[in-house]
């Protein structure tokens, strides 16, 4: 192994290097297939699409790292934005001021956090399987949302809402800025904070973590609460993009977020996984989708390719592990 290789490995881990190679492959293949792939317009559209899925994936990441799952991410996002939409409507709809928006956003974050808090508390104190708890929460929130909105859209927001969704600062789309800030926050949370450290430990062995003096119940509750808050951020960004709220917006993203985490090398049983590699996985997914789009395919084909891509990556990881084992046995 060369010194550069081992330096990169130590800094980034094999996962990031592998995904980086995939990213390169995707870029090369599509730029050969379409001359519109390597253009500012294409990257612009990727930058606009990335944040919605990306924010929801960040919300999914924490629970998976802790050895669980949060199947309620999309509906938590919906319910949170409903709160914001009502605050705006109560303050005059299109005439509502920015103050109302801020207040509504804070309420939305609180609602998202509350939903996560309930899930986390149930997971922590009843020790029920997180898949079940979040599944039940998802069914509940979907029902609640449909009941409150009667299945309809809520729209009629002040102009600045759409401006947030479509505007840009120094050429960088506003949603992308929100996303990158959240990525940074998660990176710090998982890499440097106490709770992040506990998340990994709880994901590997919750009892041993408790024996080491960690209040694991509190940690789990906080993990899901933060996941819920991140859902609300995703919801607000989605609302600004669509300029409307409907229960079911982003529903199709649910299993894609899980897919993105697995693609990013997150251990399905918890305990291992990095924000950077998940970010890379998200970029690959969006580039795949935009590349196929340029070649005339629709979103459905992209969905299928995402699924097949995950399978291919998992098979390659398996083969890689086998190869390393064989090489070790050979020498």
């Amino acid at each position: 192994m060369g010194p550069l290789q081992s330096f990169l490995k130590a800094r980034l881990g094999t996962e990031v290097i592998g995904l980086g190679l995939f990213l390169l492959l995707v870029v090369v293949v599509f730029s050969l297939l379409s001359d519109r792939f390597l253009t500012a317009a294409n990257f612009g559209s990727v930058a606009v699409q990335l944040p919605e899925l990306g924010l929801l994936t960040l919300a999914m990441l924490l629970p998976i790292l802790s050895g669980g799952l949060n199947l309620a991410v999309t509906y938590t996002a919906n319910i949170s934005t409903l709160t914001l939409a009502w605050v705006l409507q109560a303050n005059g709809g299109p005439e509502a001021g920015f103050g109302a928006f801020l207040f509504g956003s804070v309420l939305a974050l609180a609602v998202g956090g509350a939903s996560g808090f309930v899930m986390g508390a149930v997971v922590a104190y009843s020790r029920a399987h997180p898949i079940l708890v979040s599944l039940a929460m998802m069914i509940f929130l979907r029902g609640l949302g449909e009941y409150l909105t009667r299945g309809g859209d809520i729209s009629g927001f002040p102009d600045f809402v759409a401006a947030i969704g479509h505007g840009s600062i120094l050429g960088v789309p506003a949603p992308l800025i929100v996303f990158l800030v959240c990525v940074l926050l998660w990176q710090i949370l998982l890499g440097r904070s106490r709770l992040g450290f506990f998340t990994y430990m709880v994901g590997s062995n919750i009892e041993a973590t408790r024996y080491s003096g960690v209040n694991t119940k509190r940690a789990l509750t906080l993990i899901y609460t933060l996941s819920g808050i991140m859902c609300a951020v995703a919801g607000i960004v989605m609302m600004a993009r669509f300029n409307s709220v409907r229960v079911g917006h982003g529903e199709a993203y649910l299993l894609i977020t899980v897919l993105a985490c697995f693609l990013g090398g997150v251990d399905p049983f918890g305990g291992f996984g990095r924000v950077t590699s998940v970010l890379l996985a998200l970029v690959i997914l969006q580039l795949l989708s935009s590349g196929l789009n340029l070649l005339g395919a629709n979103q459905h084909l992209s969905t299928a390719v995402w699924g097949l891509f995950l399978i291919a990556v998992m098979v390659l990881r398996f083969a890689w592990k086998r190869w390393i084992e064989m090489r070790r046995n050979g020498t």
Partner: peptide, 15 residues
């Protein structure tokens, strides 16, 4: 596996 095949099956069917 099944989250991947979920997306593959559904995407291909709709396509």
């Amino acid at each position: 596996v099944t989250i991947a095949t979920f997306n593959a099956f559904f995407g291909l069917l709709m396509f």
